[in-house]
Amino acid sequence: MQLSLVYENGFPPGYFILRSVACDRVLDVEKDSYEDDAPVCLYPSTESSLVESFRVPTSNNQVFFIDTAGALCSRSSGHAIDVDDGRLVLRHRRPVSQPYPNKYSHSLPSFHYDASTGHVTVTYASDPAYPDGTNPSGAWRERTYYLTSIPERKPRSVLDDAAEALERTLRSPLSLFSGLQAATTVPEAAFDLREDEIEEQERAEEAEIDDAVDKVRKVRVVGTTVEEDRRLGARARERRVWEVLPLRTVARKTV
Rank of each mutant, 00 (worst) to 15 (best):
D214F: 05
S175K: 13
V244Y: 09
V40M: 06
P246L: 07
Q98H: 08
V6C: 10
F64P: 01
G118K: 02
V26A: 10
D36N: 15
Y104T: 08
D192I: 06
S175T: 06
I81R: 00
A165L: 13
R239Y: 01
P57Q: 06
P173S: 02
V219C: 06
S172N: 15
L232F: 04
A129Y: 08
S172G: 09
R156L: 14
L180E: 13
K103V: 04
E199I: 04
Y104L: 12
V244Q: 06
S20M: 04
P155K: 08
P12I: 02
G223Q: 01
N135A: 07
L90H: 01
A236L: 07
L170G: 02
T184H: 09
A251C: 12
G70D: 01
Q98F: 10
N61I: 00
A234E: 15
D127C: 06
V26K: 02
G86F: 01
F191N: 11
V186P: 00
P136N: 11
S53T: 14
G14Q: 03
P131C: 08
E35M: 11
V226Q: 14
E199Y: 06
A189D: 12
A38Q: 06
S107Q: 09
L5F: 05
R55A: 06
S76M: 09
I209T: 12
S49D: 10
V241S: 07
L108A: 01
V6L: 04
E142N: 14
I198L: 07
N135L: 05
R143C: 07
G133N: 03
N61D: 05
